[in-house]
Amino acid sequence: MTEVLQVALLFLGCLFFGLGTLGLFRFPDTLTRIHALTKADNLGLGLIVLALLPGVTGWAVAVKILLVWVVALVASATSAHLVARALSAGEEAGSD
C-alpha cells in the first residue's frame, strides 16, 4: 500500500516541479515568475519529501529530510523577497 502512495506522491511532486518550470517560461514578467517558481517548486519538494519518508530506514534520516525541506522553504522565501525588493527598488530608482 505504501508503495502506491509513494509513487503517487512522487508523481504529484514532479507534476508541481513541471508547473513551476512552466510558470518560469509562460509568465510575462519577473515578479510573476518569482511567484510561480517559489510556490510550485516548494510544494513539489514537499511532496517528494513525503514520498521519500516511508522508505527511510531510521528516525534521524527522516528528520534530516524534513529539515532539508524546511531549509529549502526558508531559503527560497528569503531569496524571492530579496529579488522582488531589488527589482521594485530598481524600477523606482530607474537604475536598471
Partner: peptide
C-alpha cells in the same frame, strides 16, 4: 532581465535539492 537569470539560480536550488534527495 538579470533578475530572471537569478530565478534560474533559485530553480537550481529547489530542483537540485529534490533530485539529490531522490
Amino acid at each position: 532581465s538579470v533578475a530572471d537569470r537569478m530565478l534560474a539560480a533559485q530553480l537550481f536550488g529547489t530542483t537540485g535539492v529534490a533530485l539529490l534527495l531522490i
